[in-house]
């Protein structure tokens, strides 16, 4: 069986249930990724500060190269929350928008 026929068989099985191709709501995905990104960077920073005290997390603090003002500290965790949310939001929105664009082109 060729790769193409395998894919077609897979598609046929999927289409037995639904013939629709999923669309992503870019705004919603952006919000979800923003929440996740912000909370992730915030919690990682807080965890290192609580565990090892000030000056902890030499590797994580390298994010300061991209996120101006970010450091592994209590204040940095709040700034990280903002940057994480911003980056997550952008990534989510870009993924959703490009995905929908490609789906539209392939239709």
């Amino acid at each position: 069986m060729t790769t193409e026929s395998v894919t077609m068989a897979g598609n046929k099985r999927t289409e037995e249930i639904s013939r629709e191709v999923m669309r992503i709501q870019a705004g919603v995905l952006a919000m979800v990724c923003a929440v996740l990104g912000g909370l992730l960077l915030f919690s990682m920073t807080v965890w290192l500060v609580v565990k090892d005290g000030p000056g902890a997390g030499p590797h994580l603090s390298l994010l300061g190269n991209y996120f101006i003002g970010y450091s592994v500290s209590w204040g940095g965790s709040v700034i990280g929350l903002f940057y994480g949310a911003l980056t997550g939001g952008i990534v989510g929105w870009v993924i959703g928008t490009i995905y929908n664009l490609v789906v539209g082109l392939r239709k």
Partner: peptide, 16 residues
């Protein structure tokens, strides 16, 4: 059911 089981386009997600 159609919406919940709609297929994710693998190529499109790959590109994204």
């Amino acid at each position: 059911i159609q919406t919940a089981f709609a297929k994710l386009d693998s190529v499109a997600l790959g590109v994204a």
